[in-house]
Amino acid sequence: MCLAIPGKIMSISGDDAFSRMGKVNFGGVVKEVSLAYTPEAQVGDYVIVHVGFAISTLDEEEAHRVFEYLQQMEELQELEGGQQVSVTD
């Protein structure tokens, strides 16, 4: 229901909160996007964009959480000397 992808804010224009627009770079493709719903977003931030609107500012710390979680599990696994499970059992 909602294709939304992260892009980096290159510049911001517009005066009042609702008309604040940002030029956002998605891996080399730049699109003008409304920042009305992300008043906290600044140049250099990554925002998640859906149908031309930024709907959240991406939390870069949280972005690594899925990998840290994986790391801890693997270490836990080694500690317990767990058996190797093949994925395609």
């Binding site: 294709l3 992808i5 998605f26 891996g27 080399g28 493709v29 699109k31």
Partner: peptide, 13 residues
């Protein structure tokens, strides 16, 4: 696939 072409594809679905 070049990164910018992949990005455009992600944006358009």
């Amino acid at each position: 696939v070049r990164e910018d072409v992949q990005a455009a594809c992600e944006m358009l679905g």
